[in-house]
Structure formats: structure tokens, C-alpha cells
Amino acid sequence: MTDLFFGLVATWGLIIIGLSAYFSCLAVPVPTFAVMLAGGAFAAAGDLILWQVVCVAYLAAVAGDQTGFQLGRMGGRWLDAQLATRPSRAALFARAADVVDRWGGIGVFFSTWAAAPLGPWVNFAAGAARLNRWRFTLWDAAGEAIWVSGYVSLGFLFGTRLDALTDLVASWGGFATAACVALAAGIGLLRHGRHRKEH
């Protein structure tokens, strides 16, 4: 599937980069990290312009997060339908709601880049929890800056080995997500233990 998206980036350039970044923030299963890497690689080859790749990806990602936040705030039948179709989605939303409840804006920040698979659901959960929009936007914008610049830069610097880089980043991304979830769970357990001791 990543080869298909590499071809689409080669043909359609910034349009595919923007659409991929936007829809991935709405839980559409798109290999956006591979698209970002490809965008950086094509910029290094002179087929795209680096600052345009970064700007399009960044603005599209922030717009996608804002859309997810708004959909979560609206909630209702749309969100219920999304959660009812697959139990895995309900589980992801429950985890995301816990992240927002425990960490607020900081949880939003880390979900955009350190735990990216959870990110779209954090957007929905933040909206549903009525997190302050400006707080959400500031933390989200900071996190997306790391996510976009990190992947595009990797593609730009190591684009000649794009296939190997994609495999490596995919493996690393899963490890990073698991590590962040484990760290958050550990901190939560420590806080819970201290709270019990105090009472």
C-alpha cells in the first residue's frame, strides 16, 4: 500500500500530501508517515519544494485535528455510529478519553507525534470532553510541528533509501507508541498509589 502512495505523491505531489495529512487526523487508515517521508524525499530530489511540503502537511494536519475536535464536540449520532461499528474503535476512544481526562492539553500534544495512532481519537475525545478550544489548538499545533517536521526531514535527509526508511519508521512508530502508553500507565499507577497512601 505504501508503494501506491509513493506513486500518488510522485504524480499529484502536494495534493496527496495535504489530503493524507488531513484525513489521517480523522482516523482514516492512510499511511501518512510514508507520505511525509516521500514528500521529503521528493523535495531532496528537486521534484517538490521543501517549505511547501512542510507547510501543506502542517496546515492540513492542524485542520484535520480541528475538524476531529469539532466532530467530537458535536458528538451525537455521528460519534455513536463510529464507535458502534467496531469494538476496537470504542476501545481506542475510551483510551483517548482517559488521556484527555488525565493529561488535558499535554495529552493532546503527545498524541500528535509520540502516540500518533491514538491521535485522531484524542481529537474526538477532547471535543467531546469540551476541552478549551484554544488550549487544544496550542498544544495540537506544537505537536503537529514536531510530527510533520520530523517525518519530512527524515525523508529529505535519507530519501535515497526510502523503502528501508519506511520499514524502520513503521517499526519505530509502534515501539514509540507502546513506550508512551506504558510510561503514562506507570505514572498513573504511581499517582494512584500516592493518592491511596494520603487517604
Rank of each mutant, 00 (worst) to 15 (best):
L4H: 13
V9F: 07
A10W: 11
W12E: 03
L14S: 11
G18I: 05
L19Y: 08
V30D: 04
M36Q: 08
A38T: 15
G40Q: 13
D47C: 02
L48T: 07
V54L: 15
V54C: 07
Y58C: 08
Q66C: 15
R73L: 09
M74Y: 08
G75N: 04
G76Q: 04
Q82V: 06
L83T: 01
R86M: 08
P87H: 09
P87Y: 06
S88V: 00
R89P: 12
A96F: 11
V100F: 13
V100M: 12
W103E: 07
W103F: 10
G104F: 03
G104N: 00
T112M: 02
T112R: 15
P117N: 00
W121N: 02
V122N: 01
V122C: 11
A128L: 08
A129S: 13
L131V: 14
L138P: 01
L138F: 13
W147Y: 14
V152N: 00
S153V: 03
F156S: 05
F156R: 13
F158T: 06
G159P: 01
L162I: 13
L168K: 07
W172T: 01
G174A: 02
G174C: 05
A176W: 02
A176S: 03
A179T: 10
A182K: 05
L189N: 01
R191W: 01
R191E: 00
H192Q: 02
